[in-house]
Nucleic acid binder design. Sequence first.
DNA 1: TTGATTTATTAATGTAGATGAATGCGATTA
DNA 2: TAATCGCATTCATCTACATTAATAAATCAA
Lengths: 182, 182
Amino acid sequence: MNSLSEILTLDSNAKTKEFKRGEIIQREGTSNSFAFYVKKGLLRSYTIDEKGKEHIFLFASEGWLIADFESQEFERPTDLFIDCLEDSKVVVFNRECFKVAALSDEQLRKNAHLMARRIAVLQKRVIMLMSASAKDRYNKFLETYPELPNRIPQRMIASYLGITPQALSSIRRNVLKSRQFS
Amino acid sequence: MNSLSEILTLDSNAKTKEFKRGEIIQREGTSNSFAFYVKKGLLRSYTIDEKGKEHIFLFASEGWLIADFESQEFERPTDLFIDCLEDSKVVVFNRECFKVAALSDEQLRKNAHLMARRIAVLQKRVIMLMSASAKDRYNKFLETYPELPNRIPQRMIASYLGITPQALSSIRRNVLKSRQFS
DNA sequence: TTGATTTATTAATGTAGATGAATGCGATTA
DNA sequence: TAATCGCATTCATCTACATTAATAAATCAA
Protein backbone atom coordinates (compact mmCIF):
# COMPACT_ATOMS: atom_id res chain seq x y z
CA MET A 1 0.00 0.00 0.00
CA ASN A 2 1.02 3.57 -0.65
CA SER A 3 3.67 2.39 -3.08
CA LEU A 4 4.80 4.52 -5.93
CA SER A 5 3.37 2.24 -8.56
CA GLU A 6 -0.04 2.42 -6.92
CA ILE A 7 0.03 6.16 -6.94
CA LEU A 8 1.37 6.66 -10.40
CA THR A 9 -1.61 4.97 -11.96
CA LEU A 10 -3.83 7.62 -10.46
CA ASP A 11 -2.89 10.09 -13.13
CA SER A 12 -0.83 9.05 -16.08
CA ASN A 13 -0.23 12.69 -16.92
CA ALA A 14 1.36 13.42 -13.58
CA LYS A 15 4.93 14.59 -13.97
CA THR A 16 7.92 14.15 -11.77
CA LYS A 17 9.58 17.43 -10.94
CA GLU A 18 12.69 18.29 -8.99
CA PHE A 19 12.77 21.03 -6.40
CA LYS A 20 15.59 22.59 -4.41
CA ARG A 21 15.74 22.79 -0.64
CA GLY A 22 13.86 25.89 0.46
CA GLU A 23 11.61 26.13 -2.57
CA ILE A 24 8.00 26.94 -1.78
CA ILE A 25 5.92 24.83 -4.10
CA GLN A 26 2.48 25.89 -2.89
CA ARG A 27 1.41 29.13 -1.30
CA GLU A 28 -1.52 29.97 0.93
CA GLY A 29 -4.39 31.49 -1.00
CA THR A 30 -3.75 29.50 -4.15
CA SER A 31 -7.08 28.35 -5.46
CA ASN A 32 -6.03 25.49 -7.67
CA SER A 33 -3.85 23.55 -5.32
CA PHE A 34 -1.97 20.38 -6.20
CA ALA A 35 -1.18 17.14 -4.50
CA PHE A 36 2.42 16.03 -4.19
CA TYR A 37 3.80 12.52 -3.88
CA VAL A 38 7.33 12.43 -2.51
CA LYS A 39 9.68 10.11 -4.41
CA LYS A 40 12.77 11.46 -2.75
CA GLY A 41 13.49 14.19 -0.24
CA LEU A 42 11.37 15.86 2.41
CA LEU A 43 8.45 18.29 2.24
CA ARG A 44 6.28 19.97 4.84
CA SER A 45 2.94 21.73 4.88
CA TYR A 46 2.26 24.56 7.29
CA THR A 47 0.10 27.58 8.02
CA ILE A 48 1.20 31.04 9.05
CA ASP A 49 -1.06 32.66 11.66
CA GLU A 50 -1.95 36.32 11.96
CA LYS A 51 1.08 36.89 14.21
CA GLY A 52 3.35 35.52 11.51
CA LYS A 53 4.03 32.29 13.36
CA GLU A 54 4.43 29.04 11.44
CA HIS A 55 2.50 25.93 12.45
CA ILE A 56 3.67 22.74 10.77
CA PHE A 57 0.77 20.51 9.88
CA LEU A 58 2.58 17.59 8.30
CA PHE A 59 5.98 16.30 7.21
CA ALA A 60 6.15 14.11 4.11
CA SER A 61 9.21 12.02 3.38
CA GLU A 62 9.66 9.32 0.76
CA GLY A 63 6.42 7.50 -0.02
CA TRP A 64 4.07 10.06 1.49
CA LEU A 65 1.47 12.23 -0.12
CA ILE A 66 1.05 15.87 0.83
CA ALA A 67 -1.91 18.05 -0.10
CA ASP A 68 -4.61 20.29 1.30
CA PHE A 69 -7.62 18.00 1.37
CA GLU A 70 -9.80 20.60 3.00
CA SER A 71 -9.20 22.97 0.15
CA GLN A 72 -9.75 20.28 -2.45
CA GLU A 73 -12.90 18.76 -1.04
CA PHE A 74 -14.60 22.10 -0.47
CA GLU A 75 -13.08 23.87 -3.47
CA ARG A 76 -11.70 26.65 -1.37
CA PRO A 77 -8.33 28.38 -1.64
CA THR A 78 -5.76 26.57 0.43
CA ASP A 79 -4.58 27.67 3.87
CA LEU A 80 -1.42 25.64 3.58
CA PHE A 81 2.04 26.43 2.37
CA ILE A 82 4.12 23.53 1.13
CA ASP A 83 7.89 23.73 0.82
CA CYS A 84 10.97 21.54 0.53
CA LEU A 85 13.19 20.81 3.51
CA GLU A 86 15.62 18.92 1.25
CA ASP A 87 16.24 18.76 -2.48
CA SER A 88 13.33 16.58 -3.58
CA LYS A 89 11.84 14.61 -6.43
CA VAL A 90 8.10 14.98 -6.41
CA VAL A 91 5.22 13.69 -8.52
CA VAL A 92 2.78 16.51 -9.07
CA PHE A 93 -0.93 15.80 -9.47
CA ASN A 94 -3.43 18.48 -10.25
CA ARG A 95 -6.32 18.93 -7.86
CA GLU A 96 -8.87 17.30 -10.11
CA CYS A 97 -6.99 14.13 -9.58
CA PHE A 98 -8.07 13.86 -5.96
CA LYS A 99 -11.57 15.15 -6.30
CA VAL A 100 -13.84 12.20 -5.85
CA ALA A 101 -16.13 12.99 -8.74
CA ALA A 102 -13.27 13.03 -11.21
CA LEU A 103 -11.81 9.68 -10.30
CA SER A 104 -12.36 6.32 -11.88
CA ASP A 105 -13.40 3.43 -9.68
CA GLU A 106 -9.99 1.91 -10.04
CA GLN A 107 -8.30 5.12 -8.97
CA LEU A 108 -10.67 5.54 -6.05
CA ARG A 109 -9.90 2.14 -4.71
CA LYS A 110 -6.20 2.86 -4.62
CA ASN A 111 -6.87 6.20 -3.11
CA ALA A 112 -9.03 4.80 -0.32
CA HIS A 113 -6.16 3.31 1.64
CA LEU A 114 -4.24 6.54 1.52
CA MET A 115 -7.23 8.42 2.84
CA ALA A 116 -8.02 5.93 5.58
CA ARG A 117 -4.43 6.03 6.68
CA ARG A 118 -4.45 9.79 6.75
CA ILE A 119 -7.62 9.83 8.85
CA ALA A 120 -6.02 7.41 11.28
CA VAL A 121 -2.93 9.61 11.61
CA LEU A 122 -4.99 12.75 12.11
CA GLN A 123 -7.25 11.08 14.64
CA LYS A 124 -4.21 10.12 16.67
CA ARG A 125 -2.77 13.61 16.36
CA VAL A 126 -5.95 15.29 17.60
CA ILE A 127 -6.18 13.00 20.59
CA MET A 128 -2.52 13.60 21.40
CA LEU A 129 -2.88 17.37 21.14
CA MET A 130 -5.88 17.30 23.46
CA SER A 131 -4.67 14.89 26.08
CA ALA A 132 -0.88 14.71 26.21
CA SER A 133 1.76 17.07 27.62
CA ALA A 134 4.42 18.53 25.33
CA LYS A 135 6.93 16.04 26.72
CA ASP A 136 4.67 13.09 25.94
CA ARG A 137 3.96 14.41 22.47
CA TYR A 138 7.69 14.73 21.84
CA ASN A 139 8.38 11.18 22.98
CA LYS A 140 5.54 9.89 20.83
CA PHE A 141 6.92 11.80 17.88
CA LEU A 142 10.33 10.17 18.32
CA GLU A 143 8.71 6.76 18.52
CA THR A 144 6.53 7.28 15.48
CA TYR A 145 9.06 9.01 13.23
CA PRO A 146 12.46 7.83 14.49
CA GLU A 147 14.30 8.83 11.33
CA LEU A 148 12.93 12.37 11.03
CA PRO A 149 14.83 14.13 13.85
CA ASN A 150 18.09 13.68 11.95
CA ARG A 151 16.70 15.49 8.96
CA ILE A 152 14.67 18.26 10.56
CA PRO A 153 15.86 21.22 12.65
CA GLN A 154 14.58 21.35 16.25
CA ARG A 155 12.51 24.44 15.70
CA MET A 156 10.42 22.57 13.15
CA ILE A 157 9.88 19.64 15.46
CA ALA A 158 8.73 22.18 18.04
CA SER A 159 6.39 23.74 15.53
CA TYR A 160 4.94 20.33 14.65
CA LEU A 161 4.38 19.59 18.33
CA GLY A 162 2.68 22.93 18.85
CA ILE A 163 5.32 24.38 21.22
CA THR A 164 8.19 26.87 21.01
CA PRO A 165 11.83 25.89 20.32
CA GLN A 166 12.68 27.04 23.86
CA ALA A 167 10.12 24.68 25.37
CA LEU A 168 11.43 21.79 23.28
CA SER A 169 14.97 22.60 24.30
CA SER A 170 14.08 22.42 27.97
CA ILE A 171 12.19 19.16 27.48
CA ARG A 172 15.27 17.68 25.87
CA ARG A 173 17.49 18.95 28.66
CA ASN A 174 15.25 17.31 31.26
CA VAL A 175 15.20 14.04 29.37
CA LEU A 176 19.01 14.01 29.29
CA LYS A 177 19.22 14.91 32.97
CA SER A 178 16.82 12.16 34.02
CA ARG A 179 18.73 9.62 31.90
CA GLN A 180 21.92 10.35 33.83
CA PHE A 181 20.33 9.04 37.01
CA SER A 182 18.96 5.81 35.65
CA MET B 1 -23.78 13.97 -0.17
CA ASN B 2 -23.72 12.02 3.06
CA SER B 3 -27.44 11.41 2.79
CA LEU B 4 -29.04 8.43 4.37
CA SER B 5 -29.84 6.78 1.09
CA GLU B 6 -26.22 7.04 0.04
CA ILE B 7 -25.04 5.41 3.19
CA LEU B 8 -27.55 2.67 3.36
CA THR B 9 -26.34 1.19 0.12
CA LEU B 10 -22.97 0.63 1.70
CA ASP B 11 -24.24 -2.43 3.46
CA SER B 12 -27.67 -3.72 2.75
CA ASN B 13 -27.40 -5.91 5.83
CA ALA B 14 -26.82 -2.99 8.12
CA LYS B 15 -29.51 -2.69 10.72
CA THR B 16 -31.05 0.32 12.36
CA LYS B 17 -30.95 0.09 16.12
CA GLU B 18 -32.31 2.34 18.83
CA PHE B 19 -30.29 3.34 21.84
CA LYS B 20 -31.15 5.21 24.99
CA ARG B 21 -29.42 8.34 26.18
CA GLY B 22 -26.38 7.34 28.21
CA GLU B 23 -25.90 3.96 26.57
CA ILE B 24 -22.31 3.13 25.74
CA ILE B 25 -22.38 1.44 22.36
CA GLN B 26 -18.65 0.90 21.94
CA ARG B 27 -15.99 0.47 24.58
CA GLU B 28 -12.26 1.06 24.47
CA GLY B 29 -10.36 -2.17 23.89
CA THR B 30 -13.01 -3.73 21.68
CA SER B 31 -11.24 -5.38 18.80
CA ASN B 32 -14.03 -5.61 16.28
CA SER B 33 -15.31 -2.10 16.28
CA PHE B 34 -18.30 -0.87 14.30
CA ALA B 35 -19.18 2.23 12.38
CA PHE B 36 -22.36 4.10 13.27
CA TYR B 37 -24.45 6.34 11.06
CA VAL B 38 -26.74 8.65 13.02
CA LYS B 39 -30.30 8.80 11.71
CA LYS B 40 -31.61 10.60 14.75
CA GLY B 41 -30.13 11.75 18.03
CA LEU B 42 -26.60 12.56 19.09
CA LEU B 43 -23.52 10.44 19.70
CA ARG B 44 -19.98 11.20 20.75
CA SER B 45 -16.65 9.40 20.66
CA TYR B 46 -14.06 9.97 23.35
CA THR B 47 -10.98 8.58 25.04
CA ILE B 48 -10.27 8.30 28.73
CA ASP B 49 -6.68 9.07 29.68
CA GLU B 50 -4.62 7.44 32.41
CA LYS B 51 -5.84 10.03 34.90
CA GLY B 52 -9.44 9.09 34.16
CA LYS B 53 -10.15 12.29 32.25
CA GLU B 54 -12.42 12.20 29.21
CA HIS B 55 -11.37 13.80 25.93
CA ILE B 56 -14.13 14.14 23.39
CA PHE B 57 -12.90 13.44 19.90
CA LEU B 58 -16.06 13.96 17.90
CA PHE B 59 -19.78 14.69 18.15
CA ALA B 60 -22.08 13.10 15.59
CA SER B 61 -25.61 14.39 15.09
CA GLU B 62 -28.08 13.51 12.37
CA GLY B 63 -26.38 12.63 9.08
CA TRP B 64 -22.91 12.02 10.50
CA LEU B 65 -20.85 8.88 10.68
CA ILE B 66 -18.90 7.98 13.78
CA ALA B 67 -16.21 5.28 13.95
CA ASP B 68 -12.63 4.60 14.94
CA PHE B 69 -10.82 4.73 11.62
CA GLU B 70 -7.46 4.22 13.23
CA SER B 71 -8.61 0.98 14.74
CA GLN B 72 -10.22 -0.15 11.52
CA GLU B 73 -7.42 0.71 9.16
CA PHE B 74 -4.72 -0.84 11.30
CA GLU B 75 -6.87 -3.63 12.71
CA ARG B 76 -6.10 -2.69 16.25
CA PRO B 77 -8.41 -2.61 19.25
CA THR B 78 -10.11 0.76 19.48
CA ASP B 79 -9.10 3.55 21.86
CA LEU B 80 -12.45 5.21 21.56
CA PHE B 81 -15.62 4.93 23.56
CA ILE B 82 -18.82 5.83 21.77
CA ASP B 83 -22.01 6.69 23.66
CA CYS B 84 -25.37 8.38 23.20
CA LEU B 85 -26.02 11.90 24.42
CA GLU B 86 -29.67 11.60 23.39
CA ASP B 87 -32.00 8.73 22.60
CA SER B 88 -30.83 7.83 19.11
CA LYS B 89 -31.58 5.83 15.99
CA VAL B 90 -28.39 4.49 14.51
CA VAL B 91 -27.43 2.37 11.51
CA VAL B 92 -24.78 -0.10 12.57
CA PHE B 93 -22.14 -1.28 10.08
CA ASN B 94 -19.64 -3.95 10.92
CA ARG B 95 -15.99 -3.16 10.41
CA GLU B 96 -15.65 -5.27 7.28
CA CYS B 97 -17.97 -2.86 5.61
CA PHE B 98 -15.36 -0.12 5.60
CA LYS B 99 -12.45 -2.26 4.59
CA VAL B 100 -11.61 -1.39 1.05
CA ALA B 101 -11.40 -4.91 -0.27
CA ALA B 102 -14.94 -5.70 0.78
CA LEU B 103 -16.54 -2.78 -1.00
CA SER B 104 -18.10 -2.58 -4.41
CA ASP B 105 -17.04 0.25 -6.68
CA GLU B 106 -20.31 2.02 -6.06
CA GLN B 107 -19.89 1.75 -2.32
CA LEU B 108 -16.31 2.97 -2.52
CA ARG B 109 -17.27 6.12 -4.30
CA LYS B 110 -19.80 7.03 -1.66
CA ASN B 111 -17.31 6.24 1.00
CA ALA B 112 -14.66 8.45 -0.56
CA HIS B 113 -16.69 11.60 -0.06
CA LEU B 114 -17.26 10.81 3.58
CA MET B 115 -13.56 10.23 4.08
CA ALA B 116 -12.47 13.36 2.26
CA ARG B 117 -14.86 15.37 4.37
CA ARG B 118 -13.56 13.81 7.53
CA ILE B 119 -9.96 14.56 6.56
CA ALA B 120 -10.90 18.17 5.94
CA VAL B 121 -12.56 18.46 9.35
CA LEU B 122 -9.63 16.84 11.14
CA GLN B 123 -7.10 18.98 9.30
CA LYS B 124 -8.91 22.07 10.48
CA ARG B 125 -9.14 20.75 14.01
CA VAL B 126 -5.40 20.01 14.24
CA ILE B 127 -4.50 23.46 12.98
CA MET B 128 -6.93 25.04 15.44
CA LEU B 129 -5.56 23.06 18.37
CA MET B 130 -2.02 24.07 17.48
CA SER B 131 -2.51 27.71 16.71
CA ALA B 132 -5.60 29.13 18.39
CA SER B 133 -6.35 30.14 21.98
CA ALA B 134 -9.15 28.48 23.91
CA LYS B 135 -11.33 31.53 23.36
CA ASP B 136 -10.79 31.44 19.60
CA ARG B 137 -11.47 27.71 19.49
CA TYR B 138 -14.71 28.24 21.37
CA ASN B 139 -15.86 30.96 18.99
CA LYS B 140 -14.95 28.80 16.02
CA PHE B 141 -16.89 25.93 17.53
CA LEU B 142 -20.00 28.10 17.89
CA GLU B 143 -19.64 29.22 14.28
CA THR B 144 -19.15 25.74 12.92
CA TYR B 145 -21.75 23.91 15.02
CA PRO B 146 -24.30 26.58 15.96
CA GLU B 147 -26.99 24.09 16.89
CA LEU B 148 -24.90 21.85 19.13
CA PRO B 149 -24.54 24.07 22.23
CA ASN B 150 -28.25 23.70 22.90
CA ARG B 151 -27.97 19.95 23.02
CA ILE B 152 -24.67 19.45 24.80
CA PRO B 153 -23.69 20.31 28.38
CA GLN B 154 -20.89 22.86 28.79
CA ARG B 155 -18.48 20.39 30.26
CA MET B 156 -18.58 18.40 27.05
CA ILE B 157 -17.95 21.45 24.92
CA ALA B 158 -14.98 22.14 27.17
CA SER B 159 -13.77 18.59 26.72
CA TYR B 160 -14.09 18.87 22.94
CA LEU B 161 -12.12 22.11 22.99
CA GLY B 162 -9.41 20.58 25.14
CA ILE B 163 -9.97 22.77 28.20
CA THR B 164 -11.63 22.44 31.62
CA PRO B 165 -15.24 23.43 32.34
CA GLN B 166 -13.90 26.19 34.61
CA ALA B 167 -11.84 27.67 31.79
CA LEU B 168 -14.84 27.59 29.45
CA SER B 169 -17.00 29.21 32.09
CA SER B 170 -14.59 32.11 32.44
CA ILE B 171 -14.30 32.51 28.68
CA ARG B 172 -18.08 32.79 28.49
CA ARG B 173 -18.15 35.29 31.33
CA ASN B 174 -15.60 37.48 29.55
CA VAL B 175 -17.51 37.30 26.29
CA LEU B 176 -20.65 38.47 28.07
CA LYS B 177 -18.78 41.24 29.87
CA SER B 178 -17.23 42.55 26.66
CA ARG B 179 -20.61 42.48 24.92
CA GLN B 180 -22.05 44.82 27.56
CA PHE B 181 -19.64 47.52 26.50
CA SER B 182 -20.21 47.35 22.79
C1' DT C 1 -41.62 15.97 47.58
C1' DT C 2 -37.24 15.09 49.24
C1' DG C 3 -32.66 13.96 49.22
C1' DA C 4 -28.78 12.75 46.21
C1' DT C 5 -26.10 13.55 42.19
C1' DT C 6 -24.61 16.21 38.46
C1' DT C 7 -23.66 20.78 36.62
C1' DA C 8 -22.14 25.67 36.21
C1' DT C 9 -19.92 29.28 38.37
C1' DT C 10 -16.49 31.80 41.14
C1' DA C 11 -12.23 32.43 43.44
C1' DA C 12 -7.36 31.23 45.14
C1' DT C 13 -3.35 29.15 43.90
C1' DG C 14 -0.17 26.42 40.95
C1' DT C 15 2.23 25.34 36.66
C1' DA C 16 3.33 24.30 31.78
C1' DG C 17 4.68 26.61 28.39
C1' DA C 18 5.04 31.47 25.98
C1' DT C 19 7.71 35.55 25.46
C1' DG C 20 11.75 38.33 25.16
C1' DA C 21 16.51 38.91 25.52
C1' DA C 22 21.30 37.36 25.72
C1' DT C 23 24.91 34.03 24.38
C1' DG C 24 27.61 30.88 21.74
C1' DC C 25 27.92 28.06 17.69
C1' DG C 26 28.17 26.23 13.16
C1' DA C 27 27.21 27.40 8.40
C1' DT C 28 27.19 30.48 4.48
C1' DT C 29 28.95 34.32 1.84
C1' DA C 30 32.16 38.07 0.91
C1' DT D 1 39.28 36.18 7.40
C1' DA D 2 35.93 38.09 9.09
C1' DA D 3 31.41 39.13 9.00
C1' DT D 4 26.84 37.81 8.81
C1' DC D 5 23.07 34.79 9.47
C1' DG D 6 20.19 31.16 11.33
C1' DC D 7 19.87 27.93 15.05
C1' DA D 8 19.95 25.96 19.77
C1' DT D 9 20.28 26.96 24.43
C1' DT D 10 19.68 29.38 28.86
C1' DC D 11 17.46 32.49 31.95
C1' DA D 12 13.92 35.82 33.80
C1' DT D 13 9.44 37.00 33.51
C1' DC D 14 4.64 36.59 32.20
C1' DT D 15 0.19 34.45 31.20
C1' DA D 16 -3.24 31.15 29.79
C1' DC D 17 -5.07 27.57 31.57
C1' DA D 18 -5.12 23.67 35.22
C1' DT D 19 -6.18 22.36 39.83
C1' DT D 20 -8.59 22.49 44.03
C1' DA D 21 -12.26 23.84 46.67
C1' DA D 22 -16.59 25.98 47.82
C1' DT D 23 -21.35 27.19 46.56
C1' DA D 24 -25.64 27.33 44.24
C1' DA D 25 -28.62 25.79 40.66
C1' DA D 26 -30.47 22.14 37.94
C1' DT D 27 -31.49 17.32 37.25
C1' DC D 28 -32.61 12.88 38.65
C1' DA D 29 -34.20 9.03 41.74
C1' DA D 30 -37.04 7.28 45.16
